[in-house]
Amino acid sequence: MNTLTGRSPSRLYIGVDIGKDRLDLAATDFRLSVENNCAGWNKILANTRKLKRHVHFVCEPIGHYGGAFIRFLHARNKVVSLIPGIRARSFARATGQLAKGDRLDAEILAELGRRLKPPPTRKPKKTESELRAVMRCRFQLLRCCATEERYAVTIRYPKIRRILEPVIQAMKAQGRALDDLSLKVVSRDDVLFKKFHAFCNVSGVGEVTARTVLSELPEIGSLNRRKIASLAGLAPYSKDSGSTAAPRHIQGGRRKVRPALFMAALAASQRNPVLAPFYKRLRARGKLHRVALTAVMRRLLVYLNSLARKIDQDAMAPKPPPTATAKTKRNWIRAALSKRAHVKGRRICRRVHNAVT
């Protein structure tokens, strides 16, 4: 099977398999393998520039190994599409490609780009990238702290427990420091801070939930209710066949945002003036506790998405020019009169000057 791509004269899809040490690229009549560092990335740009075509890179998001490379491409205004690994692997099986390797994976990604034409991945803002890095570091640190606390309970020897206690306290202190750092990052962006403040005003949503949603779902406000629920992994998918109607289940999505939304939904189901009656109605209809909470999570996320959309629309709306004071007008007129303008321009400026003074 020939999985080579790029027959379109307008756009060339290049698959990139990202590894720890190397990057493998494949397209039609194009093969390249470079080191995963700045010198290798510049070599990729130099070789793709010789093709004299619109290049569209297709990669898999594999964490910190490829994060720097993706930021490098975005900084140079290159078109990049990030494809989930499970989607790329399913596409390979659908095309009959069962073997796996670095070069083969790059060819499969290029073939996927040519056939499916995935949309470009949006370039994240600097504050969004910083907030995501801080929140993920906090998540990892608190998870390690919880593991050490569970381990400390089972220790029989007091000396070992005394050694672990300062470590646990230090982890908690670092977690609080990361909370403060995330608040500083949010406050540097006006739109991000407005979203954070609006989310925190919703009954049941705390600061941690608001920061987690903003870091893990930067697309919030730009998608409709179905897409944002699917992106968070809260969309119920059907598995019907013939006369069989199986129960719907949620799956996929970004898993780090669901625990935060679950705790927010748990609080909102008890005190939120809109979601609490909604939760009680579902329970009265015989829905299980987890099923009703999942529905509350989705409705809560949809409402947060509507709040973020309104804030984005207000930020993009043209703002009226600020009203100039009399002193500002006099300074502007004085500067206009001092320039060597045409006679007509001088007459207009003097007329305005006389009207103001």
Results as ranks from 00 to 15, higher is better:
residue 2 N to L: 11
residue 3 T to I: 12
residue 17 D to R: 04
residue 21 D to W: 07
residue 25 L to V: 01
residue 26 A to P: 04
residue 28 T to Y: 04
residue 34 V to I: 11
residue 42 N to H: 14
residue 43 K to L: 14
residue 44 I to K: 10
residue 52 K to N: 14
residue 54 H to E: 10
residue 55 V to S: 02
residue 59 C to T: 07
residue 64 H to P: 00
residue 77 N to H: 08
residue 85 G to E: 10
residue 92 A to W: 09
residue 99 A to G: 15
residue 100 K to C: 06
residue 106 A to N: 11
residue 112 L to F: 15
residue 116 L to Y: 08
residue 121 T to D: 04
residue 123 K to G: 00
residue 123 K to P: 02
residue 128 E to H: 13
residue 135 M to L: 07
residue 140 Q to A: 13
residue 141 L to N: 05
residue 142 L to F: 01
residue 144 C to Y: 06
residue 144 C to S: 03
residue 150 R to Q: 14
residue 165 E to V: 00
residue 167 V to K: 06
residue 170 A to K: 09
residue 183 L to T: 10
residue 185 V to G: 07
residue 190 D to N: 13
residue 194 K to H: 10
residue 198 A to L: 04
residue 198 A to P: 00
residue 200 C to E: 15
residue 200 C to P: 12
residue 202 V to T: 07
residue 204 G to L: 09
residue 209 T to L: 04
residue 210 A to S: 15
residue 223 L to H: 14
residue 224 N to H: 12
residue 225 R to G: 01
residue 232 A to V: 03
residue 234 L to C: 05
residue 238 S to Q: 13
residue 240 D to I: 08
residue 245 A to I: 05
residue 249 H to M: 14
residue 252 G to V: 05
residue 263 M to F: 11
residue 269 S to M: 06
residue 277 P to D: 03
residue 280 K to V: 00
residue 286 G to H: 02
residue 293 L to M: 02
residue 295 A to E: 04
residue 299 R to W: 01
residue 299 R to F: 01
residue 307 L to K: 06
residue 309 R to E: 13
residue 313 Q to H: 11
residue 314 D to K: 11
residue 321 P to L: 14
residue 323 T to A: 12
residue 323 T to L: 12
residue 328 T to I: 09
residue 329 K to H: 07
residue 336 A to W: 10
residue 342 H to Y: 04
residue 344 K to V: 15
residue 350 R to N: 07
residue 356 V to L: 13
